[in-house]
């Protein structure tokens, strides 16, 4: 069969595949997941960018029917599209946790997620534990973190501190994490990060019917409306279980609350394409929201049992 080359960029690797012309998104996505050994596939997607707007490969649509640049290799980013409500309960496999850890760490360092200075230092210390293992002053000599990107620039610029002073700060926390294996340190990282207000929120610039600029946030718990000046605290929230229906028509988007006494919320987004993406994110997040409130599937039960065994075995080894 005729094929074309795709490049898949994950948080820590790049891979190339020969993709058959007739393949649907799902065929490529499954191949990537199999190659990575990833089974908790429902959090992830293959992302591409079109005219500065993020888009995700549709599972039931041919890869080549997407509005992607046809220049080979056709590039996709394998990324978490949906976030768990509780990382420790929901992320079972080590590879899943690791990919989330890398993605969230990048968002924090790139200042896509606001993180206060103290939390930034603590997170950095867990990232160091994950990478370097237990602190050993005879190995981890002064300057050992000099080449590492560990803190958001905003945090560094906030204080008059030298690189050595930061290293000292981070190391004093790092030394406290003795005994934590890589996967444990990464999970501790995620447990702190998931409490940051901007964690897991997809923001979109919108205008309400009066023309006021606002932000819409879509996350694991529902839809949120923000003042553009404050991405941390929503002005209004619509939890998934309080929404009856969501719909769009061209650039207009409508949220109908379950409670008929609460006003329908209508807004405009910049493009029809954006509304399609918002609806997609709503459906996916709501689906996971419902799944979490039911018993685990057999597959997940089995995965959790396996993970527990694996953890016990590792602990014995240590």
């Amino acid at each position: 069969p005729k094929t074309f080359t795709v490049r898949i960029v994950t948080m820590d690797a790049e891979m190339e595949f020969n993709c058959e012309m007739k393949w649907k998104g799902k065929d490529l996505f499954d191949l990537v997941c199999r190659t990575l050994g990833l089974r908790e596939t429902w959090f992830f997607g293959l992302q591409y960018t079109i005219k500065d707007t993020v888009a995700w490969l549709k599972m039931d649509k041919k890869v080549l029917d997407h509005d992607v640049s046809k220049e080979e290799p056709v590039t996709f980013h394998f990324l978490a599209k949906f976030y768990p409500e509780n990382a420790e309960e929901e992320l079972v496999q080590e590879i899943t946790q690791h990919l989330f850890f890398l993605q969230v760490k990048k968002q924090i360092l790139d200042e896509k997620i606001y993180c206060p200075p103290e939390a930034s230092v603590l997170l950095a210390s867990y990232a160091v534990q994950a990478k370097y293992g237990d602190y050993d002053p005879s190995v981890h000599k002064r300057g050992f973190l000099a080449q590492e990107e560990l803190l958001p620039k905003r945090v560094i610029n906030l204080y008059q501190m030298t690189q050595e002073m930061w290293e000292e700060r981070i190391t004093s926390w790092y030394a406290e994490h003795r005994g934590r294996a890589r996967d444990e340190a990464e999970m501790e990282y995620l447990k702190i990060a998931q409490d940051l207000e901007m964690y897991g929120v997809n923001y979109f610039a919108i205008r309400n019917k009066k023309g006021t600029e606002l932000l819409l946030g879509v996350d694991a718990l529902g839809l949120h409306i923000y003042d553009p000046e404050n991405r941390l605290t929503p002005k209004i929230s619509f939890p998934w279980n309080e929404i009856r229906n969501i719909s769009y028509s061209d650039k207009e988007f409508t949220i109908k609350p379950l409670d008929k006494k609460i006003d329908v919320f209508k807004f405009n987004s910049s493009k029809l394409r954006v509304n399609k993406l918002i609806l997609q994110l709503c459906i996916g997040n709501h689906d996971l929201f419902m799944r979490r409130r039911k018993a685990d599937s057999l597959e997940v039960q089995q995965m959790k049992a396996q993970a527990r065994e694996e953890k016990a075995r590792k602990q014995m080894e240590r």
Partner: peptide, 22 residues
């Protein structure tokens, strides 16, 4: 025309989704 018109609209009923899952 219908296809194009449909392409401009989308709707999701959370209530129906919940019912179908139970």
């Amino acid at each position: 025309y219908f296809a194009r018109k449909a392409n401009h609209k989308g709707s999701y009923s959370l209530v129906d989704a919940l019912k179908s899952k139970v």
